[in-house]
Design a binder for these strands. Sequence first.
DNA 1: AACAGTACCTACCGTTCGGTAAGTTTTTAT
DNA 2: ATAAAAACTTACCGAACGGTAGGTACTGTT
Lengths: 203, 203
Amino acid sequence: MAQAANSSRTRRQILRAAVKRFANAGYAAASVQQIVGDAKVSKPALYYHFRDKAGLFQALVSEAHDERFGVVQEAAARGRDFRGQLVEILVALFDYFHHHRELTRIAFATAFAAPGEVPAKVRYLDKCQRNLEFIHSLMKRAQADGELGHRFDSRDLAYGFYGLTNFYVRSHLLIPNYRLNRRTAERIVDLFLNGAGAQKKRE
Amino acid sequence: MAQAANSSRTRRQILRAAVKRFANAGYAAASVQQIVGDAKVSKPALYYHFRDKAGLFQALVSEAHDERFGVVQEAAARGRDFRGQLVEILVALFDYFHHHRELTRIAFATAFAAPGEVPAKVRYLDKCQRNLEFIHSLMKRAQADGELGHRFDSRDLAYGFYGLTNFYVRSHLLIPNYRLNRRTAERIVDLFLNGAGAQKKRE
DNA sequence: AACAGTACCTACCGTTCGGTAAGTTTTTAT
DNA sequence: ATAAAAACTTACCGAACGGTAGGTACTGTT
């Protein structure tokens, strides 16, 4: 073959199979035997491309987080005003999740997994923090620009929006019939900006 | 011994050890050998009290969910008005989570776990739905009573509040320095009711 | 032609897994 | 006193686990 090691056909097949297995069984319950079976390669082939089971998992999750982070940043750049940014971010996330359901499952499960369940190697928490910090920076800028009041601490706002978002995505993972489209994104942003108590449309 | 089977000393010891192991390692990675080791009982003692590993886990999670649901209902009954109900629910949940950190970890991890990771026996989804439906009923009643506008669908509101709540608890699980007290509860409820855009205190 | 490195393979390692068979002690019922 | 059920024990399965030793086929380089 003699391709670049990161895009070898075998490597890609292993990753594809691993996503499915990890998504459906979790890290601990997914066995490398099943993975190499699905990928139609031998076990040493897997251990040639990845240091161990943990390394395989890590490569998967790390790449997914980075890609998602990039998507969010691009979306934020597309937004005209603050509300537009939030909507764009949500739409982009919905789209990303729609096309990477299994990776998303893994990411969520990993975030909530018991400390000893998932290989401790990478600090997934850091990657999540990075996302949160980005949202936080948006909130701070919106407050500085006067697009957002100072009634709430910017960190609380970041938590609130992040939480709202996560929950909708999560619900969609569990109950896929809840359709996540641009209209949903706008509704969530309005709920966030105007509150449940708002009686009429924002002017 | 000859006690009621549900409160035998051995059984309680097994459950105590199991909570710790499942919370720290996840379902699949926690082994029954470790559990009986911690509990200082033999393996067949465990299999005497529980049908199998899945049954042990199920008993744990099921009881936790039911207890939590009861706590929420009692809290809601304590609230004077709608806002008070929401605040009371949050305070009660914060308190419950504070005293049952490990069980909470398990509950969250289970909710997000891959389908094949956790024993399929019980529909945990149903227990979560029950919680959501209860919140939903509060929202509907608040709308009927005029305490809440009709700008948002009651189900969206339930999702929103549930999501906000979950996220804060979750954050607290991951980053315990974020203190969850009554003041935090009130801030979250205000954010939910008035929205991030609100500039001044609710009258 | 000789060698080195890549990219795998078959076959197997020691360990640990969930679970059980069969026997023993303790408690309760008659 | 005795049977029987409950509450365990030690000792041990077979299967599956993650991981590896050692060999092989195929490049590309010298």
